[in-house]
Design a protein around this nucleic acid. Structure first.
Length: 559
RNA sequence: GCACCCGUAGCUCAGUGGAUUAGAGCGUCUGUCUUCGGAACAGAAAGUCGUAGGUUCGAGUCCUACCGGGUGCACCA
C-alpha cells in the first residue's frame, strides 16, 4: 500500500505539480483492490471536472504502476479503482506478516492499566481494563515500542481507612494474631465485605465517620514512620499482601503479560505532596477553605481539591506524584493511561494541573477510557454494593456457560471467549457481557476463531504437497482469500494508530468468513492446485494466529 | 444548572466524508451438502442510522439546536 500510495503521489506531482498525500482506501471487491477519491479533491482546486482529472491521472498511473496493476478504471463521480495483478497481490499476501506498523519504533511507551486498589474487591470493570490494557500494550509493542506495563493502586487513602476500621472492628480490636482465623480461600471475600461495611458506616454513622477519618491519618503515618511492627501496622501490611496475592490469582488465570512494575500509591504520595506545595508557592495551586485546590475553571474545566483541609493529599495529588515518577524514571515518549470513563473529566483536570508544572510529560500523556461492564440484562456492576460481580465471577460464568454447551471447552477456550467478548466492541462505550454468547460455538466469538485456526492447521497436516513459495496466479476463490489476507497490515496499522483492538476482531472474523467461503467450493488436498492452495491456507492460519495473539488469545493447533 | 460520552435491524454491535443496495453476529424463516474437522455455506424477512435544520459535488460520519439514556461537577477513588 505504501508503494502504491507513493506512486500515486508522484503521479499527481508530475501531472499537476501538486504535492499532496492522496487517500488510498480498500474498496469493495467488485470495484477493485484499492480506490482513491483524489480526483474529486483535486477537481475543486483545479476547477475542472472530476472525471476528467481522474482520466488524466489514471493514464499516468497505469504507466507508473506497470505490471503491478492489472486494471485501472474510473467509476461513479470520479473514483479511480486499482486492481492489482495476481503476482502483486500474491506478493502482498505472502508478505502480510512481515509488514508491521512502525509507529513506535525506538520509542518508550508506558501503559498503565488494571489499577486495582488493595482492600477492595476486583470487580468486573477490573477484568475489562486488564484485558483491554494488555491488548493495547501488545499493539504498541508490535509497532516497535519499548513497552512498560504499569499497575497503580491505592494502598493509602480513605477507602483503606474504611476497610481498616471495619477490619479492626471485625477482629474485636487491633489484634493481628486473629487474622490467622480467616481461611486463605475466604480472604478476598472477607476484605471485600469489610470494605463494604466500612463504606456503609462512613455514610450512615457520624461517629464511625469521624473514626475513619482518624484511621486515614494513621494509615498515612504507617508509611511516613515506616511502621511495620505496631499491631495496627501488622494488620495493614498483612491485608495489603493478601490483596496483592489475590490480584496475582486473577492475572494468572487471565494469562495476561505480567506487569513490569506495580506502583503503590504510598510510594508516589511524598513526591506529589512536595510538588503541590511548591506549586502553591508559584501560584499553580491556591488555598480555598483550608484546602489546596487547582482552579480548572480557568482552563474550561472544573476545580478540584488536591490537599484537603485536614492536610491529607487526595487522589489528585498522588496522580501528580505518579506522573512525575513515570517521567523521571522512564523519560517516556508516550504514556497511556486506561481507566473507566467516570475518570475522564477528573483526569483532564489532573493532567492540566501537571501541565502547569511539567508540560512535557503532560503533553505526552494519553488517557483512554472504557465504559461500564454490564451483565446481559443491563445491570451495572458496582463495588459500593455488597453483591458485587467480581472479575472472577465473570470467568466462572463463562466456565458455567461453557459446561452447559456439552462440548467441554478447556481453559484456553474459556479465556478466548471472555477476552474476545471484551475485545470486539470499540472501547469507550459500555459493554454488555453475555457469557452464553461469548462461549458460543458459532458466530463472532473467540472460540469460533480458535476453531477456524485449528481446522486450517488440520488441513495442512493432511496435505502431501509442498506449498509454493510465491503465489503468482489465482484460480476460483483463491483471489478473494489472498486479497483478504493482504489487508492484515492495513488493519494492524489502523488498530495501532487508533489504539483500538476491536479493529483486529472485525478483521479476523471477516477473514474466517472469507476462508469458509473459499473452502466450501475449493478442494485443497488432492487438487491440481494443492501446492498453491496450501500456501494460502498456511498464510491464513498464520494471520489468524498472529491476530489472536495481539488480543492475548491462544491459537491451539487442535481443540 | 454546566460539562463530557452515547442513541444504527427484535437483541448485541461494526461502519476511514464517498459508489445502482447502510453491514455483521444472535434470534426468526427457507435451502445446500452422505464434511480436506458442518463450530460450514447459500438465501429471505427485518432500518424514516433519535428528531429538525445546516455545511458539502456527496453526511450514519462534520456543525447547530432539540429529544432520550449514561457519567462527572472541591475536601471519595
Amino acid at each position: 500500500m505504501e508503494t502504491i500510495q507513493t506512486t500515486l503521489q508522484g503521479v499527481i506531482q508530475d501531472v499537476f505539480g501538486l504535492d499532496i498525500k492522496p487517500e488510498l482506501t480498500r474498496t469493495d471487491e467488485q470495484f477493485g483492490d484499492y480506490a482513491t477519491n483524489v480526483a474529486m479533491q483535486l477537481a475543486g482546486r483545479l476547477r475542472r471536472a472530476p472525471r476528467e482529472v481522474a482520466e488524466e491521472l489514471s493514464v499516468s498511473l497505469r504507466g507508473a504502476l506497470g505490471d503491478q496493476a492489472a486494471d485501472i478504471t474510473i467509476a461513479g463521480p470520479g473514483f479511480i479503482n486499482i486492481t492489482l495483478s495476481d503476482a502483486a497481490l500474491g506478493a502482498m499476501a505472502t508478505g502480510a506478516l512481515s509488514s508491521k506498523p512502525r509507529d513506535y519504533e525506538g520509542k518508550t511507551v508506558l501503559v498503565e492499566y488494571s489499577d486495582p486498589n488493595p482492600f477492595k474487591p476486583l470487580h468486573a470493570g477490573h477484568l475489562y481494563t486488564t484485558l483491554i490494557g494488555d491488548m493495547i500494550a501488545r499493539l504498541v509493542s508490535v509497532a516497535g515500542a519499548q513497552t512498560v506495563r504499569l499497575n497503580y493502586g491505592g494502598d493509602v487513602g480513605l477507602h483503606v481507612a474504611k476497610s481498616m476500621w471495619a477490619i479492626c472492628r471485625d477482629l474485636g480490636g487491633e489484634l493481628p494474631e486473629k487474622l490467622a482465623a480467616v481461611p486463605e480461600a475466604d480472604r478476598p471475600a472477607w476484605l471485600g465485605a469489610n470494605y463494604a461495611a466500612g463504606n456503609t458506616a462512613y455514610e450512615d454513622d457520624e461517629q464511625a465517620k469521624a473514626e475513619i477519618v482518624a484511621y486515614n491519618k494513621r494509615v498515612y503515618a504507617l508509611h511516613t514512620d515506616d511502621d511495620h511492627d505496631s499491631p495496627f501496622a501488622q494488620i495493614y501490611w498483612t491485608c495489603r499482601q493478601w490483596s496483592y496475592d489475590y490480584f496475582a490469582v486473577l492475572y494468572d488465570q487471565l494469562q495476561v503479560v505480567p506487569f513490569d512494575r506495580y506502583i503503590p500509591e504510598s510510594s508516589v504520595t511524598p513526591l506529589g505532596v512536595r510538588t503541590v506545595q511548591e506549586g502553591l508557592a508559584t501560584g499553580v495551586f491556591e488555598e480555598s477553605d483550608g484546602a489546596v485546590i487547582f482552579d480548572g475553571d480557568k482552563f474550561g474545566l472544573h476545580k478540584r481539591v488536591f490537599i484537603n483541609s485536614a492536610g491529607l493529599p487526595t487522589y489528585e495529588t498522588k496522580d501528580v506524584g505518579l506522573s512525575l515518577t513515570k517521567w523521571t524514571d522512564y523519560q517516556f515518549d508516550k504514556s497511556i493511561i486506561i481507566t473507566a470513563v467516570e475518570q475522564l473529566q477528573y483526569m483532564q483536570v489532573v493532567i492540566k494541573a501537571i501541565e502547569q508544572i511539567a508540560p512535557e510529560p503532560a503533553q505526552r500523556t494519553t488517557h483512554l477510557t472504557h465504559g461500564v461492564v454490564k451483565l446481559k440484562g443491563g445491570i451495572k456492576m458496582s463495588s459500593r454494593r455488597g453483591n458485587v460481580v467480581t472479575a472472577l465471577d465473570i470467568l466462572a460464568a463463562a466456565r458455567e456457560a461453557g459446561a452447559a454447551t456439552g462440548t467441554n471447552p478447556d481453559e484456553a477456550t474459556i479465556l478466548a471467549a471472555v477476552k474476545y467478548a471484551f475485545a470486539k466492541n470499540r472501547i469507550g462505550g459500555d459493554t454488555a457481557y453475555d457469557p452464553v454468547e461469548s462461549i458460543a460455538l458459532e458466530g463472532n466469538s473467540g472460540p469460533y476463531l480458535q476453531y477456524a485456526h485449528a481446522r486450517a492447521r488440520s488441513i495442512m497436516g493432511k496435505a502431501t504437497a509442498t506449498p509454493v513459495e510465491a503465489v503468482t496466479d489465482f484460480d476460483g476463490g483463491e483471489r478473494s482469500l489472498a486479497r483478504k489476507i493482504s489487508e492484515y497490515p492495513d488493519v494492524m496499522a489502523h488498530a495501532v494508530s487508533d489504539l483500538m483492538p476491536h479493529h483486529i476482531c472485525s478483521y479476523l472474523y471477516e477473514l474466517a468468513q472469507t476462508f469458509n467461503r473459499f473452502y466450501e467450493n475449493n478442494q485443497v488436498v488432492g487438487n491440481d492446485r494443492e501446492a498453491v492452495r496450501l500456501r494460502l491456507v498456511s498464510m491464513y492460519a498464520d494471520v489468524l494466529q498472529d491476530g489472536l495473539q495481539l488480543l492475548g488469545i491462544t491459537a491451539p493447533d487442535r481443540m
